[in-house]
């Protein structure tokens, strides 16, 4: 196990100390610093202000200034923990932490529930799922008749909405994803295991000395 002497200064000025972020997440200090390399490139892609705007987030996701996307917007809103309209570095690290392969399953289930609870009512409602299905169809240029969409919704709510009150609560969601683990695949990013090799340049900017003990 390593012992870290933080000499946080120029590089992380204005951002949370990587040692603190590492202590509160599944990331090591080096991994937090490597994430900072990624963060810097995203946050400076349109305006170099050290913060990620929604436009910069979409540009990083789609590699072009694509039109608004419901799902990207929703992810952005969830990453924007402090609801400031921008993502700062601690939001970025703490949110990506949920996507770490080692993050607790419960955290992934909670995050995915929030993702689909578009109106933040504490329930995933049928009209929200329909809205997301329609958005997916637009995005993929796939066409389905409204009747087919309703059939898919009927089947989904029959399986997931155990008490048949027309909405999926947290406990029903928990049971549903436990039976359908593939639904949580989007909640794990294997890339996060290799972040220091993907962004090796962090070593040139590292402000933390690791001292083996």
């Amino acid at each position: 196990m390593g012992c870290f002497h933080s000499k946080v200064g120029r590089q992380f000025s204005g951002h949370e100390d990587p040692v603190i972020l590492a202590s509160q997440t599944a990331f090591s200090v080096s991994e937090v610093e490597a994430l900072y390399e990624l963060y810097k490139s995203i946050s400076s892609s349109i305006v170099d202000d050290g913060l990620i705007s929604k436009e910069e987030f979409q540009l990083a996701l789609f590699k072009n200034k694509k039109k608004e996307n419901l799902f990207a917007n929703r992810i952005f809103e969830l990453f924007d923990v402090k609801r400031k309209g921008v993502i700062d570095f601690s939001d970025f690290v703490r949110s990506l932490d949920v996507f770490h392969p080692n993050a607790p399953q419960e955290d992934k289930i909670d995050f995915s529930f929030k993702l689909y609870d578009l109106d933040r009512t504490g329930f995933i409602e049928r009209h929200e799922v329909k809205q997301m299905l329609i958005a997916l169809l637009c995005e993929s240029e796939m066409k389905l008749a409204d009747e087919t969409i309703e059939t898919i919704l009927d089947k989904t709510f029959l399986d997931a909405d155990v008490n048949q009150d027309g909405k999926i609560d947290k406990s029903e969601w928990h049971d549903f994803v436990s039976k359908n683990p593939s639904l949580l695949k989007i909640m794990t990013l294997p890339y996060l295991r290799d972040i220091t090799t993907t962004f090796p340049s962090f070593v040139f900017h590292s402000e933390v000395d690791e001292v083996a003990t």
């Binding site: 799922v129 299905l133 898919i152 989007i186 990013l189």
Partner: peptide, 26 residues
């Protein structure tokens, strides 16, 4: 697989907007 046999969340999870892996692709 015909979409009608899939549940709605399986379909939704295929959205490009939910694929955060692209953030890491240079």
């Amino acid at each position: 697989v015909a979409p009608v046999t899939m549940n709605a969340f399986e379909l939704i999870s295929k959205s490009q907007g939910l694929n955060l892996g692209t953030l890491f692709e240079k």
